[in-house]
Design a protein around this nucleic acid. Structure first.
Length: 720
DNA sequence: GTAGGGTTAG
């Protein structure tokens, strides 16, 4: 035999057993040999196409496919599969329709790919037409086709439940017939019968045989539609039908227990996963991380994460989101950095999960860095990300940037509206917040529980009691939202700040749920501001009944007694605290300079630049005293000499942070300070003077709102 | 042919 004839035989043998080819390179070698030795028959070309499509080599497959005129069924099959596997669903469908145009009868193995394409392109109409075609050809009894139909209807049901779907308009592909027309033709062929949306059940019931995939598909369909009980019922029925749950089943039902925060059931599933060796499965891993995090068992989430043999972007994101949602902000940011170092590319979800950490910690430089990433990744039109950016900029003191991002957004959902309303509320822009709320309702976006908290916060910072009452009534009457603890707290706070102390007392006493210590505490601090010691004593009694270890209440009472010069009562409170081992949280302020956060505690001398800070502060104090500042020593609640009181005020944490900010940043730049408790009255006055003297905008975020100091004035107009 | 993670408050 000559060498060319032996090559010919070899090629023939390989074409009969294409599965023997293990690499793309071998496939290309075969192609080269084929060109030299074989006649170009459509069937042998089709085999080569199928070899290329098995390696997902779309370009090579297409090259051969286009050489066939007309291509036989096997070639269509391969190319449709290859398009679907490459995620080119529009091409996949157009190809299918074009094949039908040639009068070629489809093969049942094509349907799963084509139906998947209909799901991806959200084209129910075409999917139904194809279902008609499947019935006419008698392939509806095929297990794989049935499963694909189940999946398609389940996904369309989800789209229907979760906010509707759009029918995708086809574009013309080069050289392909106009798909709209073909689509129409198929629909006409099918006749007028319309398959209803509850088709999942119909298809499922009519299937002559069902495997674990059929059950999983229906269970997932229910779970994704929020029909959790139905999904769990199906799992039990699946057991009765002697079909064992697999890793797909588990990762589908774990999110249900996460949603229910049912740790017992979640742990049961975890145990089952371990027994069946599913616990190293990536999908189950991320579901477990999320389930534990939702049940506030973040240590267990970390444990699962650490034991995962490999991690993908979703498992990273589950742990990051879990940490952030459980208040472990530093840990969340650390994990985000670790994810980048592990060369895992962050996705949209990663940014919206980690951003609240920057918002909470007021780390503007990190937030800006993430924003840079987001812009480079072109993720800025994602509504989740945009909302988290609005919130981050607002919380970091830059309400202008927050508003700019909000205004740039193409579509606003309830969360983005709420974020910007809350942003303005925290900055004391009550009227902006209320007009945005009005605009939101005009746009037909329904406010939720949180939106009303934002509205009351806005009213609270401007003393708009009538407006607040109006919205409080509308909330339940027009929106069917039952007031919760947060709403009561915001209203109580609002009435208290406005000096309507008795009204607030009545309001809290008549709540339809039992008031908590913290709700009474808002009134207690109002009593301090409005110097009503008599009511304060009454309120404190209520607090100690519910929450005997309430630190804030002891301190407030002690301070109020001290202000009234009732030193013995003040001391009593402090002794009581000592006996009970209750400790006051130290006042703390922090400031970001050159991408580093510097923390100051009241009276703190530990900063390496303390001497310079002290000198600068002393100099500033002398200058503002010349401008007319008089220290308000009423704010110092110790029985000490006036000079000593002045010194105590002098070393308040926000002043140390401010002096540091002034000496370590260029003249004219805005200074942003965050404080863990409320700014005291005297510091508030001092900072107003300082903003004028140093000609800088000073933004202070305390635990309740923002104060923008400029030219001797504060945005809160001294109402806070 | 089937599965997992996100934004507003607290």
């Amino acid at each position: 035999m000559t060498s060319s004839s032996s090559a010919k035989t070899l090629v023939k043998t390989i074409l009969k057993t294409p599965q023997t080819l293990k690499t793309k390179f071998q496939a290309k070698q075969l192609h080269a040999q084929f060109l030299k030795t074989q006649p170009h028959s459509p069937s042998s070309t089709s085999i080569l196409i199928s070899i290329y499509t098995n390696f997902n080599l779309l370009q090579d497959s297409l090259f051969l496919f286009n050489s066939l005129s007309p291509p036989p069924l096997p070639a269509w099959k391969s190319i449709i599969k290859c398009y679907a596997n490459s995620g080119l669903f529009l091409n996949c469908l157009t190809c299918f329709i074009q094949m039908r145009g040639f009068g070629i009868c489809p093969d049942h193995k094509m349907f799963p790919f084509v139906l998947k394409a209909c799901v991806f392109l959200k084209n129910l109409r075409l999917g139904e037409s194809i279902h008609g075609c499947i019935i006419r050809l008698g392939w509806d009894f095929d297990l794989f086709t049935g499963n694909a139909l189940l999946n398609m209807y389940a996904k369309f049901q989800s789209l229907e439940v979760n906010g509707g779907y759009k029918v995708f308009t086809f574009n013309m592909l080069d050289g392909m017939p106009k798909s709209d027309e073909l689509c129409e033709r198929l629909a006409q062929e099918k006749g007028k019968s319309v398959i209803q949306l509850d088709s999942v059940t119909k298809v499922f019931k009519m299937m002559p045989q069902r495997d674990v995939v059929s059950w999983n598909t229906v269970i997932a369909g229910n779970a994704q539609n929020g029909m959790y009980e139905e999904a769990l019922k199906m799992v039990r029925e699946m057991g009765n039908a002697n079909v064992k749950p697999d890793s797909f089943t588990l990762s589908t039902i774990l999110p249900i227990f996460a949603e229910y925060a049912d740790i017992m059931k979640g742990k049961e599933i975890h145990g089952y996963a371990i027994r069946h060796r599913f616990d190293s499965d990536l999908y189950i891993g991320s579901s477990l991380i999320d389930m534990y995090a939702n049940c506030a068992q973040i240590e267990d989430s970390c444990h699962v994460f650490n034991l995962l043999p490999q991690r993908d972007d979703i498992s990273w994101n589950s742990i990051i989101a879990g940490c952030v949602q459980n208040g472990m902000f530093d840990e969340g940011l650390k994990l985000f950095r670790q994810m980048l170092m592990a060369k895992v590319t962050p996705r949209e979800v990663s940014f919206s999960s980690v951003m609240p950490a920057c918002a909470y910690l007021t780390t503007l430089h990190l937030g800006k860095q993430l924003h840079g990433y987001i812009i480079r990744g072109r993720f800025d039109d994602n509504v989740f990300i945009a909302s988290s950016l609005v919130d981050m900029y607002a919380k970091c003191g830059n309400i202008k940037a927050a508003r700019w991002i909000f205004d740039q957004m193409e579509h606003h959902d309830m969360v983005s509206w709420t974020a910007i309303i809350m942003g303005h509320a925290l900055h004391g822009h009550a009227y902006d917040a209320l007009s945005l709320f009005e605009q939101m309702e005009k746009d037909g976006v329904k406010p939720n529980y949180v939106s009303f908290i934002a509205v009351f916060t806005a009213c609270s910072h401007a003393g708009l009691t009538d407006e607040a009452w109006k919205h409080f009534k509308r909330m339940s009457q027009n929106h069917g939202i039952t007031p919760g603890l947060e709403h009561y707290a915001a209203m109580a706070d609002l009435l208290g700040r406005a000096g309507k102390l008795e009204e607030a007392y009545e309001f809290i006493s008549s709540m339809h749920i039992a008031p908590t210590g913290s709700i009474w505490s808002t009134l207690l601090s109002a009593c301090r501001v409005h110097k009503n010691l008599e009511l304060a004593e009454k309120v404190a009694k209520e607090i100690f009944k519910i929450d005997p270890g309430n630190v804030g209440a002891y301190i407030l009472m002690s301070n109020m007694y001290a202000a009234a010069r009732r030193w013995k009562d003040a001391a009593k409170m402090r002794i009581f605290m000592k006996k009970k081992g209750i400790r006051k949280e130290p006042a703390c302020s922090w400031i970001e300079v050159k991408n580093r956060v510097h923390t100051f505690i009241s009276g703190d001398k530990s900063h390496p630049l303390y001497d310079r800070i002290f000198k600068a502060l002393k100099d500033l104090m002398e200058r503002i005293e010349r401008e007319g500042y008089i220290p308000d020593t009423n704010e110092v609640f110790h029985d000490v000499e006036e000079e000593q009181k002045k010194y105590l005020l002098f070393s308040h944490s926000e002043r140390l942070a401010l002096a540091f900010g002034i000496i370590s940043s260029p003249a004219g730049t805005t200074i942003r300070i965050t404080k863990n408790i409320r700014v005291c009255v005297d510091c508030h006055t001092a900072i107003k003077f300082m903003s004028k003297i140093v000609q800088r905008e000073i933004i202070v975020r305390d635990n309740s709102r923002f104060h923008h100091f400029k030219d001797g004035e504060c945005s809160c107009r001294d109402y806070w």
